[in-house]
């Protein structure tokens, strides 16, 4: 399902500045797009707007432009959550756990129950998604006893079990160790061609490894949008021209770190 934003802008309170302004991008069906930028760039707001949560929960906010999800055009944005067509995973995976179910299996089942899927199909769909994400051994565990990486895969499972044509992930690379990050990259690659994926991040490594196109934002505005190849080609230019102090801070901090993730970033940015 294609995602298209046309001159989309949003502000939460009329007296405050616009959080997202004049964003126009298109992500082809089945492609994976990374939205990069520092904290406060408007990445989360953009994902919330596409999912419908922004329109549903911030009725006092003001939007302009339009958002298209597949054949549906919303002006300025959907006013109710588009689940199960669009699945959004918020930044902290533990917040996505309902708190209403006791086991990993039941937590995944909860998503199917919410959209009234025939109970006879539950077992098959849940087992299949658990196998794809490698969490079948966690089946009877309590969700809140899982580690960060396991919790994130569970969250993905709760969304992927309904087979959403569009998957949105808000900073999925945050606080993941190297193994968990590699696993996430594999999962994102598996989804390519079947599910349109948009994810946000404030570091470029996951984007480099898993995305087809990269959107860079700062202060709510699009700084660049294009395919990964052109991003990599222009990396040096980006590195020097990105007017984002925080962004450079991230790189500087990473350059002192020795994790695999940091190494990857350093290598890409010529800091190694």
């Amino acid at each position: 399902m294609e995602i298209r934003l046309d001159g989309f802008s949003f502000q939460y309170v009329s007296s405050q500045p616009t959080v997202v302004s004049e964003v126009s991008v298109a992500v082809a069906s089945g492609a994976c797009c990374a939205i990069l930028g520092p904290t406060g760039a408007g990445k989360t707001t953009l994902l919330l707007a596409i999912s419908g949560a922004l329109g549903a929960q911030h009725s006092s906010g003001t939007g302009r432009g339009e958002i298209s999800v597949g054949p549906h055009v919303f002006r300025p944005m959907p006013d109710k959550v588009l689940f199960p067509q669009v699945g959004l995973c918020l930044q902290e995976p533990q917040i996505m756990i309902s708190g209403l179910r006791d086991t990993v299996y039941d937590e995944i089942k909860f998503s199917l129950e919410n959209i009234s899927v025939d109970p006879e199909l539950h077992e098959e769909q849940i087992v299949s998604v658990m196998e794809r994400l490698g969490i079948q051994h966690l089946r009877d565990r309590k969700p809140f006893t899982l580690s960060g990486g396991e919790l994130q895969r569970l969250t993905l499972a709760t969304l992927l079990v309904v087979q959403p044509p569009v998957l949105l992930l808000d900073e999925p690379g945050n606080s993941l160790d190297d193994d968990a990050l590699s696993r996430l990259v594999r999962i994102l690659r598996q989804l390519r061609g079947r599910t349109t994926v948009l994810f946000s991040d404030n570091q470029p490594d996951l984007a480099i490894l898993a995305a087809d196109s990269i959107l860079i934002m700062e202060d709510g505005e699009v700084i660049s949008f294009g395919d990964k190849k052109s991003f990599l080609k222009n990396l040096g230019e980006f590195k020097s021209s990105l007017p984002v102090r925080k962004w450079q801070d991230v790189i500087r901090v990473l350059s002192r770190s020795s994790s695999l993730r940091a190494k990857r970033v350093k290598k890409r940015f010529g800091l190694a």
């Binding site: 929960q57 919410n114 969304l159």
Partner: peptide
């Protein structure tokens, strides 16, 4: 803060207040 986020997360998972018995 958590109530706001959890309320949104529940909505994002299609929850409309229905809880089928376990």
């Amino acid at each position: 803060v958590e109530s706001v986020n959890r309320g949104m997360a529940l909505e994002l998972r299609g929850f409309r207040g229905q809880v089928p018995p376990s």
